[in-house]
């Protein structure tokens, strides 16, 4: 299956607004290389469809279906923002994660420090195990 991995210096919102930013991606050093490495290992699993990792100045996108980059980037960004907002509205304490379940797939969206992480996986994947794996 075709794979796409690139690091870019734009946030996901900018990704959507300006697709040229995706094409003209600039390699930058990740602030948390161990996190990127962990996600990269996770991506080798069959049930994982890919991930998007964003920190303050770079984004790493690694998707098994690169044509879905825009869809996944928007979904991940929206889920994180909405998750944080709803979390505050109902006093859920510190935001841990948002899980968007769809018929075939699901998205796990969470924060580690200033890193915004979206992991996309098949519906039957164990998102709790993946989350604890990355958080370790």
């Amino acid at each position: 299956m075709a794979r796409k991995k690139k690091s870019i210096s734009e946030t996901s919102t900018e990704l959507v607004e300006d697709s040229a930013a995706v094409i003209e991606a600039v390699e930058e050093k990740q602030a948390y290389p161990e996190l990127a490495e962990c996600l990269s290992k996770l991506n080798e699993r069959l049930e994982v469809l890919g991930y998007i990792l964003r920190d303050t100045n770079a984004a790493t996108i690694n998707l098994k279906e690169p044509e879905k980059i825009v869809e996944y980037a928007i979904l991940g960004s929206e889920a994180l923002e909405a998750g944080q907002e709803i979390s505050q509205l109902f006093n859920l304490g510190e935001f841990r994660c948002a899980i968007v379940e769809r018929k075939e797939t699901k998205a796990l969206c969470f924060l580690i420090n200033e890193n915004r992480i979206n992991v996309f996986m098949k519906k039957d994947a164990d998102h709790a195990e993946i989350l604890s794996n990355v958080r370790e």
């Binding site: 869809e71 909405a82 006093n91 304490g93 968007v100 769809r102």
Partner: peptide
């Protein structure tokens, strides 16, 4: 907003948000 984005290529089923307290 999430549901709209989630339904681009697959049908939406559920949203779960987890916090430290609930």
């Amino acid at each position: 907003a999430i549901k709209e984005k989630a339904e681009t290529s697959d049908s939406f089923e559920a949203l779960t948000i987890e916090g430290s307290e609930g």
